[in-house]
Amino acid sequence: MTGFLLRRLLILLATLIAASLVVFAVLQVLPGDPAAIMLGTGARPDTVAALRHRLGLDAPLALRYLRWIAGLATGDFGISYTYSVPVRTLIGERVLVSLPLAVLAIVLSTAIAIPVGVLAAARRGRAADAAMMGVAQVGVAIPNFWLGLLLILLFAIRLPWLPASGFPGWDGGAWPALRALILPALALGLPQGAILARVTRAAVIETLGEDFVRTARAWGLSRRAALWRHAVPNALVPVVTLIGLQFSFLLAGTVIVENVFTLPGLGRLVFQAIAQRDLIVVQDLVVLLAGSVIAVNFVVDLVAAWLDPRQRLAA
């Protein structure tokens, strides 16, 4: 297990470095001098040059990359070109919206998908299975931002139970903030849950056909016990892997869904930063998001290896 862990850690580091290099390189190619943009069109060349120096933009590329990476590693994300405040503050405020939203969406989708998938597998071929998988098939096809609109129509307009948009912040208590996140989390989580339910069902059906499940039945275990004690735990590997993969979809999904519900999260920050050419914020955000995807997949690999020792040899 130690060798496996070490190997995965090395791959993790290499991928992180490669991702940061790609992001840095791409954003350097873009036209426009941040210092000139910050100071406006009327600025004198020597003022621009002084600001360039202060921001470290006049240093050689390699040095700037190293400084940026060293900063990221120590929690210094640089200074926003438009707001002249530390990028860390900007991102820190928005993470408090996007992260709870993503977590809530994952929890909702998993809580719905796994029972539905297992149940459908247990009743495979019957009406209940067909009905659940029919709903899942349609659910997969619904784009999350449209589902968001439908949820607004239903639960904010028809039935005025939940807010249609906006976010009150966490200072006024957890409940008002959570209330504002329920519909966005459903919009994000339900389509993902539909995919997850289908995969869970397929994985459980596959393990139900395995020898060890048949042996368990031969030992006198009831169908239910064989299902929950033997088939389900062994079917979890692909399910956990998919939950990890969905994290990446969810992060991207928040960008659009936050727009539907006008939530002040990372997604909105991305749009603002791009519109204002606040490239350092864009650069930090992309690397952070890519970094969290890489980190989540690392954890998923570990969980999969823990669930199924065969994976340790394969990796």
């Binding site: 991928t15 490669a18 991702a19 790609v22 873009l30 990446s248 979809f249 992060l251 991207a252 999904g253 960008v255 659009i256 991305v270 749009f271 791009i274 519109a275 864009v282 992309v286 998001l289 890519a290 995807v293 890489i294 997949n297």
Partner: peptide, 22 residues
């Protein structure tokens, strides 16, 4: 294959948003 792994680290839709916006 490592190049593919790297590309998968970037949430596709998010990056598409950035590419089209920039």
């Amino acid at each position: 294959m490592r190049g593919c792994d790297l590309a998968f680290a970037f949430p596709a839709l998010l990056t598409a948003v950035m590419i089209t916006a920039l």
